[in-house]
Design a protein around this nucleic acid. Structure first.
Length: 601
DNA sequence: CGCTTTTGACCCGCGC
DNA sequence: GCGCGGGTCAAAAGCG
């Protein structure tokens, strides 16, 4: 089974990765018609066909299997009790393998189903995306015809803005993704806006830039005026469209169709700039006709219910990351600059909830809520939302990477609550309960209105909360592997995690005083723990399963290895520097959701 | 004087 | 339609 080392045979989906070897072991009746359900997982159609329809190889495998069995039985002497027991043991092993295969098949069925759903969603989104592009391009042509060159400056400004946004998206797709999500889910963005000079480069600020220059003024004028503003709906409508276009840009991938999306966004933003200036509101009392024409068919396109549902999907919502810490300070010293903009008494908690906004850079969409626990006043819950659109102070990098990683984990989940729970399971969170040290375990809330993950650091023995937070993320991954080993489970479930930890048959190395630099910035100075990351992480496991997982000594080795992993986890988390590096690695991998699995620590 | 905090009003979604 | 609750805004007050 040499193919386990061939990268082309590595499969990855939202729920897991399996090797071609495993696929070949699957029954044709289950998957013979399912090859097309994998979206972009195969290196080539030929391979797919071969892997899923390779009846010949499967037959030969079966033949080999039965041949082995017959050989085994023929070769055994019935009169010899020792050999008989050996045969029985082998036969049991084979049964065990079959059980494993059955289990794998069940998992595969589930994966196939989910892949099918994803494919459907992708198709819908692609359709909507194409439709949107067509409508926007048409509309732009019309608008440009109508407007001529009168608004050149404003158009250029908004173009620059969108350009900058796109540059930011390319630089950090995940961050832009979150930023866009924030903008489209925040209530404020849904309000009618009129432009203020665009000074920021985030998508959220872009949408916010359409806020009425003086909302209070509109309030003073009266509700009718306000209604007018709302009905002057190009602002709202086009905001929505720009946001959707931006989301589609992100959803379709930063590198695919980037230029097209760019033009679409530029077009949409120019239309927005052009049609929702404050002057329109005040100097065109007869703008009713404009309004009508604008609201009737500003661009000849309305997002369909289907699309709205897609856009409201969890995957494009803002994830919230809560961190529970034990501190007497009014807020957590997370390295960022915050400005308090509100305080509320939330129901069910006598302690007021404070609202903060990041002030490191103007227009940063990141907000946090700080509230003391009603039961234990010494516990402070800080909830972060959004992603910074600016370089972070060095002191803030650790926390930002941790929350980003946690949010990334959360956003990797699917749309439904159950799917998110599945994602958590796939990430190994359920299995972490088996470990003695359960401090700072991430808790994923599937019932909250926003997808939310909580890092409980109150029980952590570590003084440095950032280390504890990092440890929480790290444990998700390390614990998953260890749990898989302990439970002798199918390991491909854990390949769902972008950080794939290899579970080799050989013991994990605990290296003495070897310096591992990460990004050239952080180096571990203490005894380090080497993680073997490999594209074939599953293969390492599958090898174990197929070849020797049923072997008693291998089982013992797995348990031993699991213990080592646990011990190594403790070692890692006791070293804040290395933990920070590792967390940064995890964060970067999760954020990028890159297919490139090789990480050298 | 500029920045931050306080605080009451307001907006909006959601459930009944 | 109405009330509730979470979240936001912005004027006023506070602070260095």
């Amino acid at each position: 089974m040499d193919q386990v080392d061939r990268p082309g045979h590595y499969y990855r989906s939202s729920v897991g990765s399996v090797s071609s070897e495993t696929l070949q072991l699957l029954q044709p009746s289950k998957f013979g018609s399912g090859e097309s359900q994998f979206v972009g997982l195969c290196t080539s159609q030929e391979e797919t066909t071969q892997l899923f329809l390779g009846n010949e190889s499967r037959s030969s495998l079966k033949r080999r299997s039965s041949c082995d069995r017959s050989t085994m039985r023929a070769g055994s002497a019935p009169s010899s009790p020792e050999r008989s027991s050996a045969d029985d043991s082998k036969y049991e092993d084979e049964l065990d393998v079959q059980r494993q295969l059955k289990k794998t098949r069940t998992e595969m069925e589930r994966m196939m189903h989910e892949n099918q759903q994803m494919r459907r969603m992708l198709t819908l989104m692609t359709e909507e995306y194409t439709l949107l592009q067509q409508h926007l391009l048409t509309a732009v042509a019309q608008k440009q015809d109508q407007a001529g060159m009168t608004n050149t400056e404003g158009v250029k400004r908004s173009e620059d803005l969108v350009q900058a946004t796109l540059v930011a998206q390319r630089a950090s797709p995940q961050k832009s993704f979150t930023a866009v999500s924030t903008s489209t889910t925040s209530r404020s963005s849904e309000r009618p806006r009129s432009p203020t000079p665009p000074a920021q480069i985030s998508s959220s600020s872009f949408v916010k830039a359409t806020k009425p220059a003086d909302e209070r003024h509109s309030k003073a004028i009266g509700k009718s005026t306000k209604v007018n503003l709302q009905e002057h709906s190009l602002g709202t409508g086009e905001n929505m469209m720009v946001a959707e276009a931006a989301q589609l840009q992100v959803l379709s991938g930063p590198d695919r169709g980037g230029s097209l999306s760019e033009s679409v966004l530029r077009v949409a933003s120019s239309g927005l700039q052009e049609l929702s200036t404050p002057a329109d509101d005040e100097t065109h009392p007869d703008s009713e006709a404009n309004k009508e024409s604008a609201s009737e068919e500003p661009l000849g396109w309305e997002p369909t219910k289907r699309m709205k549902s897609v856009l409201q999907d969890t995957s494009v919502r803002t994830a919230r990351v809560s961190v529970r810490t034990r501190t007497d300070a009014p807020t957590m010293a997370d390295g960022c600059q915050w400005r308090k903009y509100g305080q509320k008494l939330a129901k069910g908690n006598p302690c007021p909830r404070a609202y903060y906004r990041c002030t490191v850079a103007p227009g940063c969409p990141v907000r946090k809520q700080v509230q003391r626990c009603a039961e234990d006043r010494s516990v402070l819950t800080t909830t972060y939302e959004g992603t910074h659109n600016h370089p972070l102070p060095s002191a803030a990098v650790a926390m930002a990477s941790t929350t980003s990683a946690a949010a990334g984990m959360l956003l990797m989940g699917s749309s439904t609550s159950s799917d998110r729970v599945c994602a958590a399971e796939a990430l190994g969170i359920e299995n972490l309960a088996r470990f003695s040290d359960q401090s700072s375990l991430p808790i994923i809330s599937a019932s909250a209105p926003f997808p939310r993950i909580t890092l409980d650091l109150t029980t952590s023995s570590q003084n440095d909360w950032t280390s504890a937070a990092h440890a929480a993320i790290n444990r998700v991954h390390l614990g998953a592997v260890a749990a898989a080993a302990k439970a002798n489970e199918s390991a491909y479930r854990f390949s769902f995690a972008p950080l794939r930890l290899q579970v080799p048959s050989a013991p994990i190395n605990v290296l003495p005083l070897e310096q591992h630099s990460f990004n050239g910035a952080v180096a571990a100075e203490k005894p380090s723990f080497r993680l073997n990351h490999s594209a074939n992480s599953f293969d390492g496991c599958s090898q174990g399963h197929n070849q020797a997982a049923v072997n008693g000594s291998e089982k013992a080795q797995y348990v031993q290895m699991a213990e080592r992993v646990t011990a190594a986890t403790a070692a890692i988390t006791s070293d804040p520097k290395f933990t920070a590096a590792l967390a940064a690695a995890v964060a970067s991998i999760i954020s990028s959701q890159s297919l490139e699995p090789m990480v050298a620590l």
